[in-house]
Design a protein around this nucleic acid. Structure first.
Length: 232
DNA sequence: AGTAAGATCCAC
DNA sequence: TGGATCTTACTT
C-alpha cells in the first residue's frame, strides 16, 4: 500500500477508542499518528512503539511502575482526566514525555508514546531536535520518548492535559490523534527503564511494530534485571 | 529541610 | 559510563 493510501485509511480517534484499559488501547495506537501544530508548525508522527501504564485500581492487577500507582497527586492528575487528553511530564529534569490518557472514565491510565517515524514536517522536527549544527538522522528524530516529545514540540508543563480528541488549542499548540487499521505484526516485552518487578516480563506492557527501525533500544530499569532472573 | 531516584539523552 | 538538570515524593 502506498504511503498516501495508508494515510487515507486513518481516521480521527474517538473517546470510545480510548475508554478501554491501557493494555488494550496501547497496541491499537501502533500505526496511527499524532499530529501537532505548535506555533503554526505542523508535524505528523507515525507511532511505532508504546507502553501501557495503569493506575491504582485500574484493571485486575496493580501496576507498580506507573506514576499513578500511589493515587492522584498534582503531577499525575492528568492521568485521571478524559481519555484522549495528553499527559505530558518531565523526565530527569530535561525531557518532556507524552502519554495518551486512556481507560474507563474516572480511572487513571495512559499509554506512553516511546517512538515513531516523522511522516510530515521533517524539517520542523529536525530543527527542534538539532543540537548546535548537528541534525540527527531521520531514524533518530523521534526514537525514544524524550526525542519524540521534542520532535512534536510538546513541552511540560505548558501542554500537559492538551485535548487530542477535539484538537483544542492550549498554550499555542493543537494535537490530534489518528488511528489506522489493526496491525498484525506487533511485538511485546518488558517496559524500558522501569525499576523492579514492574520492568520485567511480569509486565509485558511494551508494544512495538516488529522490525521497525525507529523503535528504541531496550534497557533494563534499576533492579529489573535482577528481579527478572528471580522470575525464572 | 534534605535527599534520592527518576517511564532519558548525549558525548566521552 | 557518567553528567546534565529539576521535579516529585519520601525521610528526618
Amino acid at each position: 500500500m502506498s504511503d498516501r493510501a495508508l494515510e487515507q485509511s486513518l481516521r480521527r480517534a474517538t473517546r470510545a477508542d480510548l475508554s478501554d484499559l491501557p493494555i488494550e488501547v496501547a497496541p491499537r495506537l501502533l500505526g496511527g499518528e499524532v499530529r501537532t501544530t505548535v506555533n503554526g508548525e505542523e508535524v505528523h508522527l507515525r507511532i511505532t512503539e508504546v507502553e501501557a501504564y495503569h493506575g491504582l485500581g485500574t484493571g485486575p492487577v496493580v501496576d507498580p511502575g506507573s506514576h499513578a500507582r500511589m493515587g492522584q497527586t498534582a503531577r499525575n492528575s492528568t492521568m485521571w482526566g478524559h481519555p484522549g487528553h495528553l499527559y505530558v511530564y518531565l523526565s530527569h529534569g530535561i525531557h518532556s514525555c507524552v502519554n495518551v490518557v486512556c481507560g474507563p472514565e474516572g480511572n487513571a491510565g495512559g499509554v506512553l508514546l516511546r517512538a515513531g517515524e516523522i511522516v510530515a514536517g521533517v524539517d520542523v522536527a529536525g530543527a527542534r531536535r538539532a543540537l548546535g549544527e548537528r541534525v540527527p538522522p531521520m531514524r533518530d528524530l523521534a526514537r525514544g520518548p524524550g526525542r519524540l516529545g521534542q520532535a512534536l514540540g510538546l513541552r511540560y508543563p505548558h501542554h500537559d492535559g492538551i485535548d487530542a480528541i477535539n484538537g483544542v488549542e492550549l498554550a499555542g499548540a493543537r494535537a490530534e490523534l489518528w488511528l489506522g487499521p489493526p496491525l498484525t505484526d506487533i511485538a511485546t516485552g518488558p517496559r524500558v527503564g522501569v525499576a523492579g518487578i514492574a520492568g520485567t516480563s511480569a509486565f509485558p506492557w511494551r508494544f512495538w511494530v516488529n522490525g521497525d527501525r525507529t523503535v528504541s533500544p531496550f534497557r533494563w530499569g534499576r533492579g529489573a534485571a535482577e528481579a527478572s532472573a528471580l522470575l525464572n
